[in-house]
């Protein structure tokens, strides 16, 4: 559970790393989001934007207090499927905060160059390179141009 000042404890970090692996699991040669070492990035983003920070603290609070987690001796002790069930419980009980945590994890994961390589996205700023497209070709209008004007007349 985070401290009263909202700081994550080492226990929170261990939990969160596993949570992130459950949210975005390994694929091909990439580890899950937690094992990829993205927790620092998630914490940085949360520190920068209050909406994420508040939600992360609330989420970790909920995780540490979840009945099923407590009964089994902690989130880390659960089997993977049980961890997912615990997360679904939290998702339904604090939907908004869970959505914000998911969002910041996705933002961190999908900003990684190794992820970009896998999905076919060019890393780095969009500008100044942009993308190339062929110019507009008027022949695409051939069908619609056959239509008579149909806009509605109106009294002055």
């Amino acid at each position: 559970m985070p401290t009263a000042e909202g700081q994550l404890t080492n226990s929170d970090r261990r939990n969160m790393k596993v949570v992130m692996d459950r949210l975005v699991p390994p694929v091909d040669d990439l580890p899950g989001a937690g094992s990829m070492g993205l927790l620092d990035e998630v914490e940085r983003m949360a520190e920068e934007h209050d909406r994420y920070r508040v939600s992360l603290v609330r989420f970790l609070d909920a995780l540490s207090m979840d009945m099923s987690v407590e009964a089994e001796g902690g989130f880390l002790a659960l089997e993977g499927e049980q961890q997912d069930e615990a997360l679904k419980e939290i998702e339904s009980s604090i939907a908004k905060e869970f959505a914000n945590v998911l969002e910041v994890v996705y933002l961190a994961y999908y900003s990684r160059p190794e992820v970009h390589r896998r999905i076919g996205w060019r890393s780095g700023p969009l500008q100044p390179l942009g993308f190339t497209l062929p110019p507009f070709d008027e022949s695409i209008l051939d069908t619609v141009r056959k239509r008579e004007p149909f806009w509605r007349q109106a009294p002055d």
Partner: peptide, 25 residues
């Protein structure tokens, strides 16, 4: 971009957990 695709904008976010990568793709 990829993060906005995952977080969703006009539709809900890509599902988390099992099936995430298939849905994202």
């Amino acid at each position: 971009g990829p993060a906005k695709t995952a977080t969703g904008f006009t539709i809900p976010p890509v599902q988390w957990g099992k099936g995430h990568h298939e849905e994202f793709a």
